[in-house]
Design a protein around this nucleic acid. Sequence first.
DNA 1: GAGAATTCATTTGTCAGACATTTAAAAGTC
DNA 2: GACTTTTAAATGTCTGACAAATGAATTCTC
Lengths: 235, 235
Amino acid sequence: MNSPDLSAQIAKSIREAIVSGELSVDERLPSEAELSEQFEVGRTTVREALKRLAAQNLIRTQRGAFGGAFVNKQSFEDAQAAHITTSTLLLSMNDVSFDTAWEARFALECACAPLSCERRTADHLATMRAEIHRQGQPGLTDEAFCASDVSFHRALVDGAANPVLSYQLAGAVEAIEPLMNMITFTARSREAITDLHTRIADGLEAQSPNTVDMALRELEDYTRGLARAVISARA
Amino acid sequence: MNSPDLSAQIAKSIREAIVSGELSVDERLPSEAELSEQFEVGRTTVREALKRLAAQNLIRTQRGAFGGAFVNKQSFEDAQAAHITTSTLLLSMNDVSFDTAWEARFALECACAPLSCERRTADHLATMRAEIHRQGQPGLTDEAFCASDVSFHRALVDGAANPVLSYQLAGAVEAIEPLMNMITFTARSREAITDLHTRIADGLEAQSPNTVDMALRELEDYTRGLARAVISARA
DNA sequence: GAGAATTCATTTGTCAGACATTTAAAAGTC
DNA sequence: GACTTTTAAATGTCTGACAAATGAATTCTC
């Protein structure tokens, strides 16, 4: 805390104004020149502060007369993308064990399964069936299989029709993919997984939370077993 | 997409190198002068790019000889703080209904209740009991009551001893606080809530997932009722 | 020779000034 | 009135300069 950069201090000051609601969505900030007078720093410093805020999606800038920096409305879409990136990095940089990440993912997924049973649309079911079909294709690489797996589970989560849930879970579901990519899937294990996926989709179609829950738990155990085999084979 | 700022492009380029693992943790980036040569832009532009990355916690900078910009290790602690800020803003800026946020929060909390039953330590239980005690104090403001409620539920989540879960759920649990602050709690409703909190803590202590689950669901229904009353009273 | 003090080179942080570019409003033109 | 041109304001970029920090190398002291 000796000397946090001026640009960081200014960014913090403006950020707090936005978070507290003092500045509201689409409101225009003072121009760079005005800010540099207010804070008594050079324009360079103000600009670096604004870039920091822009990187956090808090503001957007527009050039030209009557342009400037405006408070951004946070969209679930953008926030989700950033959330996924961060989650992925967190997992890869903190050598989180496969088990830990896996447990978190399935716990969360089980939480939204009942809601998804209630609200899933034909669209969600169609996406799941399509991914199941893809997963059965011969010649699919392991990476593509994992990506399809993620899409399948994303459809399940989105079926709950709760944007807050989708946002929070996207991080847990997508960040798993790099960890999954370590696993080599045999034809037999792929079949076992797609069978369970089919049972999950059937359960959602029949709106039977118990069926979905049981299949999810079986899937969790099964894939965890696969991962353990890979890990012990390496040691 | 006409002309994304140069500094944004450069930031993107470096960000991709970090995310892909091309640059690893604690690795030093080239100096600003070198980067400005590599990318054929001025140092100002490079600096703005680096500030963007710093705002995302991807790098840190150090002054002096042998200083420079270094790839940051993502810590759960920092990521969680950023996640909470974003979640809070998302909820306040997108007029997410109380019901939607509430549903997401309880679904997620129910998901980690069984794990918390297994693993909660004496510390977690003590935190919960302390918060329950605080919630019973007369003269507590509604804001303080809400804050204590958040702490109680955070302890429950942390009891699952899964950092990935804690990270993901922190957003859902903490972001609720501003929404809760709209509610006025009568002495009777406070009592009802702390009673349910006590049942939850008892269930965790007895390691009885069913008790916890039932109490959580009752709590969800009860507080949702309170919120609905507030909302209809306003209309 | 060992340790302390100093110097030095490198790098980030900040500033001022300049110019380019973009943009919408205002003024001019027919 | 519709179209074009001008203009003012704002961000984007570059250059050059200096301040401040910092670790390494050097010099000095004993």
